[in-house]
Design a protein around this nucleic acid. Structure first.
Lengths: 244, 244
DNA sequence: ACCTGAACACCGTTCAAGT
DNA sequence: ACCTGAACACCGTTCAAGT
């Protein structure tokens, strides 16, 4: 089949990725890609309908490196592997990764990344109607955090707000002044990401155990969200709730 | 002082906003803005150092419409007002809003939006060292959700994955097949956003009450995150934990 | 102080033509 | 089938000049 065509296609995407990481996304022009692959700009249109199409290929190329854990691990570990893996990819391609938030997720690669997340949430006992929404919440956090980090959207953490804080006075920024010196500490992004994941996993566990609060008296199942250790003790298809 | 200058500046930003909403962000060019305001492109450089600088002005202009609730409301209500308000702004300026995720948050307008969130988290009892991180988690969700919604990153919800699901077969997308028809239901974005907020408020409540799990025996305070109904019964400054 | 004209070094894409 | 050349209608920005 059109295998040489596929080769050329991925060669083009590879050049685009290299250009993006070496000189930034704005440097990814059809003309620059073309010279990089040894062609005329017009030749690229034989492989991609438009530049947007080519950028979708770039998104797919990056998404392909996000790990997709199989059902061997427990659901918690699977979610962690996906989340940490995605963040690592962001650090690997810091100038390209922000594209993922800009472009729609209808690509087949995106669906392939989402599937293990759906599986993990189902195994956590999350009701079918809530799975997609919870997955979007989870992915939004992971993607948003990773993109913010590599694109500098978080600034250099809290640093640099100090001048502004002091210039503004307690009238305009009362909470900044209440927080005071805490805002001047450098941020440990690894720790913050892990903390966020921990919080989300707790939410998932609660959604998976029927969302009963501590005062709802239901069947006294062992609470999810406690003492999860490796192994294969995650639930399987058999106890996934029916779609109602 | 340079008041006529400020007038001109905001006139320029206003034209940029109109252009962006009417014809999309790519249509926001220095040349188009200039004709819109009745000047030569070069004249704009007297008011903004560069196009990026002008876009920062645009971000500030949009951020200025995000509500900043005072301390009259309870912390829960304040978080809800900020979150819902931000999402409404996204719906008001759907083609411009995605800029907020692209550009750094060092603008004074961004700090002004963050301050009430810090205040609410402090009033929820969140320890000082955790406030900034939790705020970033909250904002990442709100911004990420709103941007995904208006930029079409969420696709049309789950719809449209059906063809792909059926073409792929249970081998490649097992969880999609486990979920089955649930994925074909249309998504109620309002409800999903509210559900996400609810989950995050629960997390905030837990962080504010010392993060004890159901198996830690501590003082038997009434659990936060339960039975919250409207009204102004949120905590106030008086019971915020000191930064430690 | 505020603005303009001309110019530079770029873009994505179309279209007719080559082999 | 795959590629090229020339052209169109754009970009952001610099620089010298105008009033």
């Amino acid at each position: 089949m059109g295998n040489v065509r596929q080769e050329r296609r991925s060669e083009i995407v590879e050049v685009a990725l290299r250009l993006s990481e070496e000189h930034g996304l704005p440097a990814v022009s059809m003309r620059a890609i073309a010279t990089g692959v040894g062609l005329t700009p017009m030749a690229l249109y034989g492989y991609f309908r438009s530049k947007d199409d080519l950028l979708d290929g770039l998104v797919g190329r990056v998404l392909a490196e996000v790990p997709r854990p199989g059902p061997a691990l427990g659901w918690r570990e699977r979610l962690l592997v996906c989340a940490r893996g995605a963040r690592e990819v962001a650090h690997r391609y810091p100038r390209t990764f922000p594209l993922l938030l800009t472009r729609p997720v209808v690509l087949p690669e995106a669906v392939r990344v989402v599937d293990p997340l759906y599986g993990a949430l189902l195994d956590a006992g999350v009701p079918g109607e809530q799975v997609a929404g919870l997955e979007r919440m989870f992915s939004t956090f992971v993607l948003g955090f990773a993109v913010s980090e590599v694109s500098g959207r978080f600034g250099e953490g809290n640093l640099g707000t100090r001048q502004r804080r002091e210039r503004a006075g307690p009238r305009e920024l009362p909470a900044h002044h209440r927080l005071g010196e805490v805002l001047d500490l450098p941020v440990d992004w690894d720790a913050e990401f892990e903390k966020g994941l921990e919080r989300l996993l707790e939410t998932v566990g609660r959604a998976g155990s029927g969302e009963r609060g501590p005062f709802t008296d239901g069947p006294d199942e062992p609470a999810v969200g406690e003492g999860e250790r490796g192994g294969t003790r995650g639930r399987t298809d058999s106890d996934a709730s029916p779609p109602a």
